[in-house]
Computed example of a mutant assay.
Amino acid sequence: MQITARALNRATLHRQLLLERAPLDVADAVRRVVALQAQEPASPYLALWNRIHAFDPAELDAALAGYEVVKSTLMRVTLHAVHAADHPVFWAAMEPRLRASRLGDPRFTASGLTPDDVAGLVPDLLAYAAEPRSGAEIEGWLETRLGARVERQAWRMLRQYAPLWHAPVGGPWSFGTRQSFTAARVRPPAAADPGRAAEALATLIRRYVEGFGPASVADMAQFALVQRTRVRAAVAALGDGLERLEGPDGEVLYDVPGAPRPPEDTPAPPRLLPMWDSVLLAHAGRSRLVPADHRAAVIRMNGDVLPTLLVDGRVAGVWRRIDGGVEASPFHPLADGVWDALEEEAAALVAFLADRDPLVYRRYDHWWAKGLPVAETRLLGG
């Protein structure tokens, strides 16, 4: 069976709850979309605001405070918010990649510590972090435990490898610059067991396809940032649990049998996506949602992914919150009806942010100062 590019777009948007806001609670929604990128504390909140009907940010506050939804370094070696029940298998799937990238990093190896040292150190670290500990407290514990000063970069590599969760510290979005950490409540399986890692990756790949598919091997490898050889083995292990499709350019795509694939003419309402929205980064072929001629404007060279206007299911511009409302800047002219829908979204976003962080993402305004290829700019939602 062949699937068109537009049908592929609609399938992913449907699974990511971006065709229609769903009446789900926070935990169910996070599990449905698999993972939310969380480098910027506000982004999981804005991601769910785009996806959940009548989303109350206090629900995410409570889910994070109660460790029902947890924030940890996982896929692509970046911070994600995931359901706590998913963390053990996601961490186990990512462990080989985390080990190679963090414990093999020159900033870590310069400390003199080895992976064998870490294997003996991590259980004690997790025991110490059974209750939330500040970064400074853990650094002090490490120095006492090792009998030597630990460079901050080495500690950073270690905490990104170990199965630690970020503990909420308050503020408008539960996390701020003052970081605190706690041990994962359910410990992932032993890192040294490659069979467990392979089994866990197969589970992660199936969940990824459910949440972002249909997808190619290259897409799967991009989502997790793991070697394609590991992904191919995971796909083979899933066997009949995945079906094959032919993509728009003839590439092999995989999907879960019976997964929803809406008609390609299904309407896709405008959305104001947050920085680093997962749907923009989950495929090797970014053109599923990001037109090739807009990619450099949206995904910056340093890795920043700007807040975007999603129009007819594809990135059509950027937005930022400024005094007076939401500044919307499309890369090409938009129809009056689209502007009307964006006005409604912007007014709702202004109200959503009012009691939390009215000028969210303001520290990224330098990208606008440097110039963006916009066709026009309008102030909405004021």
Rank of each mutant, 00 (worst) to 15 (best):
264 E>T: 10
206 R>E: 13
260 P>A: 05
33 V>A: 01
99 R>F: 09
353 L>W: 07
58 A>D: 11
228 R>K: 05
284 A>C: 00
151 E>G: 09
294 H>R: 12
332 H>G: 06
32 R>K: 02
180 S>W: 09
68 E>H: 14
334 L>Y: 02
178 R>S: 15
44 P>C: 05
205 I>G: 12
65 A>C: 04
114 T>G: 10
253 L>I: 10
29 A>M: 05
369 A>Y: 02
355 D>K: 02
354 A>T: 14
26 V>A: 06
371 G>W: 04
21 R>V: 11
31 R>K: 07
321 R>E: 08
63 A>M: 04
183 A>R: 11
177 T>Y: 01
313 G>P: 00
331 F>V: 00
68 E>D: 14
190 A>W: 13
31 R>I: 05
237 A>E: 06
232 R>T: 12
19 L>H: 13
114 T>W: 07
148 A>D: 04
39 Q>C: 03
73 T>Y: 05
343 E>A: 10
287 S>R: 10
341 A>P: 01
233 A>I: 02
65 A>E: 12
339 W>C: 00
219 D>E: 03
292 A>T: 08
210 E>K: 10
230 R>Y: 09
219 D>R: 04
231 V>C: 06
159 R>W: 10
270 P>W: 02
119 A>G: 14
297 A>T: 04
375 A>F: 11
312 D>Y: 03
267 P>S: 03
138 I>Y: 01
55 F>N: 07
4 T>N: 14
161 Y>Q: 08
311 V>D: 10
266 T>L: 08
26 V>K: 02
